[in-house]
Write a protein that binds this DNA or RNA. Structure first.
Lengths: 247, 247
DNA sequence: GGCCTTGATTTTGTATACAATTCTGGGCGA
DNA sequence: TCGCCCAGAATTGTATACAAAATCAAGGCC
C-alpha cells in the first residue's frame, strides 16, 4: 500500500524492501538516504518516499533526529504480531458470519476450498509447485474472508499487520516443507479453513471468531517449533529483522 | 506519528490535518498538491510528505493515478472503527493481565484512577475544565494500559486506529457534555476503568479482555445516540469525513 | 583524565526546475 | 449524434541545488 503509484516509486519501494528483508543491513543499523540512493540507483526524492513507506510497513523506524534505522524485533514481537493477526482475523471471520452468511455470499469461499482440496488430493503435484500453489490459494481464501467481513477499517488494520513478512498468513507454509511435519500442517490448515467457511455460512459468529483466532495460532506454533530447532534464521520470512542479543 | 520530524514538516502535517478535519474540503473531493501548497504556504516537498502522512493516518486516500482525495466514511465505518478499537484494547487489557499483573506493576494505573476519582468528586470543577481534564486523564489511562501489555506490535496497530478522530478513546467525552446524559457517562466509564484495572492486577485475562472490549462499546452507543438525535455533524470529531448520501 | 566547546563534515530538510503523465476540450469521422 | 482521437493545459513524478541541522573530532579547559 505505497502511497506513490509511479513506476519508479514502486520499484524503489520494492527494491529497498527486498534489500532490507534480504538482510542487507543489520537490525538497528542506520540506513542513510545516500546509501539507499547508491544501492538502487535513483535520485533522493523517490528513495525518500520509499523509506517513509517502509517505515509505515514496519520494516524501518524513523528516528526522532531524522533518518531511518532497520527495525529490530524480538521473537516475542513476532509471536505478538501473529497473535494480533489472529485477533483481527477472528474479528473478520465473526463479521463475515454476521454480515455475509448464507450460501450465495459464501459461494466463492467454498470454491476456493474446493480448489485447495483438489490441490492436496492430486498425487502429481509435489514440492515447490505444491507449496507455491497452496500459498496462492491460501492468500485468496484469507482475502475473500476479509471481503465478506465488509469492513474497510478492519481491512486496513489487517493489511498493516500482514505487511510484516513473518505475520503474513502464508509465512510458515514453506517452512513446513523442510520440516518433518511436511504435508500435515497443510491438511490441518485446510480443515480449519473449512470449519471457518461453514461457520460463516451458517452465520455462527461466535464459532467463526474462535476458529479464525485459533487458525493463526498454528503459525505461532510453527514459529515456536522453528525456534527450538534453531531454524528461525533459515526458514522464517523477515527473520533478518530479528535482533541478535535477545533471540 | 509522522515520519518527518522537522519543524516545517510537522507544521505541514498539523495544518493540513486541521484543514481536513475542520471540513475545509468535502469528503471525496480531490486535494491537489498545488492547492495544499497555497493553503499552508510552503513548498511542494514537505506538503507532499504531509499528504502521504495523512493518507497513512486514514484521512486521505491515495489515488491510483496520483494525487489524493479526502476519505469518505460511512456511519457503519465509524462504528467499525470503534469496534476495532474495542477488540484491540481488549487484547491490550488481556495481555496486561497476563504480563503485568500484581500491585507493583499496576500502581501507576491505580494512581490514574484515583486522580479521575478526585476529579469527579470535586464539586468545584465544572464545564469545559472538567471535560478537558477528564480527556487528559482518560488518554493517560489508556496509554498506561497499553504500556502494561508490553506489545509494540499491538501499540502500533492501536495507534493507527486511534489516529482516526472518531475512533479515539476520548472522542465522545465532550459530546456527552452537551447531551442530557451529562456526567453519567463519565461515571460509567470510570467504573469500567476500575474494573479493568482490577482484572489486570488480579491477572484475570479473560475478564480484562471482556471489559476492555465492552468499554469501547460505550463510544459506539454514544455515536448511535448522536445519530438518532442528528447531532453527529455537530459533536463527533472527524464527522467532516462522513459522506453525505449514505449518512 | 574527563568533559565541554567549537569548527569541519556529513546528512537530512527544503525549494525549485524539468520531465512525464493524466485530464480536458474540441474537432473529426463514422 | 455518438464515439474516437489528438492537441493543450494542468498536475504529478523526478532530479538536483541549496539551506539547515546533526554528527564527529580535535582541541582547550576545568
Amino acid at each position: 500500500m505505497p502511497t506513490t503509484r509511479s513506476r519508479q516509486g514502486l520499484a524503489a519501494v520494492r527494491k529497498l524492501r527486498e534489500l532490507v528483508i534480504g538482510g542487507c543491513f543489520k537490525p538497528g543499523e542506520r540506513l542513510s538516504e545516500l546509501a539507499a540512493v547508491e544501492l538502487i540507483g535513483m535520485s533522493r526524492t523517490p528513495v525518500r518516499a520509499a523509506l517513509q513507506a517502509l517505515a509505515h510497513e514496519g520494516l524501518l523506524e524513523a528516528r526522532s533526529n531524522g533518518g531511518f534505522v532497520v527495525c529490530d524485533y524480538s521473537l516475542a514481537d513476532m509471536l505478538d504480531a501473529i497473535e494480533l493477526r489472529g485477533v483481527l482475523e477472528g474479528m473478520a471471520a465473526r463479521l463475515a458470519a454476521e454480515r455475509s452468511s448464507g450460501t450465495a455470499a459464501t459461494r466463492e469461499l467454498h470454491a476456493i476450498l474446493a480448489q485447495i482440496d483438489r490441490l492436496l488430493d492430486a498425487a502429481g503435484v509435489e514440492g515447490d509447485d505444491l507449496y507455491d500453489a497452496y500459498v496462492e490459494l491460501n492468500e485468496t481464501f484469507h482475502a475473500e474472508m476479509l471481503r465478506l467481513a465488509q469492513s474497510p477499517m478492519l481491512e486496513r488494520s489487517l493489511a498493516q499487520v500482514t505487511a510484516l513478512p513473518f505475520a503474513s498468513p502464508s509465512a510458515f507454509v514453506k517452512a513446513g516443507r523442510e520440516q518433518e511435519v511436511n504435508r500435515n500442517v497443510l491438511i490441518v490448515a485446510q480443515y480449519q479453513h473449512r470449519a471457518i467457511a461453514e461457520a460463516i455460512t451458517a452465520g455462527d459468529g461466535v464459532r467463526a471468531l474462535r476458529l479464525g483466532q485459533e487458525h493463526a495460532q498454528t503459525a505461532a506454533d510453527s514459529l515456536k517449533r522453528l525456534s527450538r530447532t534453531g531454524d528461525v534464521g533459515r526458514l522464517v520470512p523477515g527473520s533478518t529483522l530479528l535482533r541478535r542479543d535477545t533471540g
